[in-house]
């Protein structure tokens, strides 16, 4: 299935032209990714954040190979323009994501206000020290819906146990 109408119309092309051309696009994204590595949560235009997210996650994949790996170091050296952050990438960020298999970033879209009509977004690495931007979902175990479904679940499990007992005997 086509993932969106846009992708169907563009016939699957997925890169945005940022800054007017290939080298400029990567330069912009390099700066965004460097900022993200430094601060772990940054605000930028939605287009830049969306494109940078892919590279930020791939960078972590490479960083997981370790700083002794020549290829990984080369990629990190290109993508991180401020060289004091390269040790941070390998020693702080990569170990944080050892148990993750991808999706190391979160992208939040910011509200469009009259002061700021441009589509802005916040890109952050998971596990960053700031308080979370989204409200934590609260459980309401005593709401009617939950009580009813809880009852359903208990009946279902009881039935299963009864069936097991019957088959055993």
């Amino acid at each position: 299935m086509r993932l969106s109408l846009m992708l169907l119309i563009t016939h699957g092309k997925r890169q945005r032209k940022l800054g007017g051309g290939k080298p400029q696009r990567l330069n912009i994204l390099r700066r965004v990714v460097t900022g993200l590595v430094r601060h772990e949560r940054i605000e930028s235009t939605y287009a830049q954040c969306d494109e940078a997210q892919f590279y930020a996650e791939k960078l972590i994949d490479y960083a997981k190979l370790g700083n002794t790996n020549a290829g990984a170091m080369r990629i990190a050296d290109y993508w991180i323009t401020e060289k004091d952050l390269i040790p941070k990438l390998f020693e702080t960020l990569a170990p944080r994501f050892t148990n993750y298999d991808g999706r190391y970033c979160r992208l939040h879209r910011l509200p469009v206000t009259t002061q700021n009509t441009r589509d802005m977004a916040v890109l952050e690495y998971k596990g960053n020290p700031y308080p979370s931007l989204r409200p934590t979902p609260k459980n309401h175990p005593n709401s009617i819906a939950n009580i009813l479904v809880e009852g359903l679940r208990q009946d279902y499990e009881k039935k299963k146990i009864d069936l097991k007992d019957e088959s055993a005997t």
Partner: peptide, 12 residues
């Protein structure tokens, strides 16, 4: 190209 974002306590 970007700014550090800590000023939103929560998007709520």
């Amino acid at each position: 190209t970007w700014s550090n974002c800590t000023r939103y306590a929560s998007l709520e």
